[in-house]
Design a protein around this nucleic acid. Sequence first.
DNA 1: GCGTTATAGGTAGATTGTCTAGGAGAAACA
DNA 2: TGTTTCTCCTAGACAATCTACCTATAACGC
Lengths: 111, 111
Amino acid sequence: MPTGQSDLLQGTLDMLILKIVALGPVHGYGISQRIHQISREVLKVQQGSLYPALHRLEKRGWLAAEWGESGKGRQAKFYKLSAKGRRQLEQEQAGWHRLAGAVGRILQTES
Amino acid sequence: MPTGQSDLLQGTLDMLILKIVALGPVHGYGISQRIHQISREVLKVQQGSLYPALHRLEKRGWLAAEWGESGKGRQAKFYKLSAKGRRQLEQEQAGWHRLAGAVGRILQTES
DNA sequence: GCGTTATAGGTAGATTGTCTAGGAGAAACA
DNA sequence: TGTTTCTCCTAGACAATCTACCTATAACGC
């Protein structure tokens, strides 16, 4: 648990959300489920982290929200990626690979 | 810049410090230099992050400090890894691989 | 009918880690 | 003499996540 009490790597949540939404419109609850599933139960997004993050991303114009009907007959807020959000996702992915690669190099250093 | 204004991936600093110290005794200033060099200038540890982190790690018993002479004729505080610190490093490395792998799986997901 | 679980949205406050922006002193170099 | 480099440090701000809570409806077991 590098982040102490965290179920995530701090700073990656926005990128993960953008990525999931890029796969197609989803509602918030579905985003947390997909992150959990695709990560094979490794990553877990708490609701107290998820919803503030979604509002943050919408406010920055990276996501657009629309109320609709979930597959289970309930009202849900569906998010989709804006063009700005897609550019942001690309930047964040590039930054991730840069930083994760650098961390990897340090961890691999011997003697 | 996944972490916004950060030069690091939040939560990895302790692990990086433990790893560098595991390579052999070093003083704080040297740790930041080595992280910068080994990461090929990608990672940069600010002094305002470094020293609090070192004190934190020492307080937790993962590092032991001792004053000595740096190669440049100056007094410097040299850190070495304790047995507890070595175990902690192993755990943090395992956690890193778990989480970074999970993030990677999500980023690789297609359509 | 009743309680529980799952689905879906949300907020408030605390914690924590890192950053910015300072300060200090000694050595080396112009 | 002044500037850069080396080495240590702290205070306060900021941002992200967590815990803990709230609401409401559908479905299921009993």
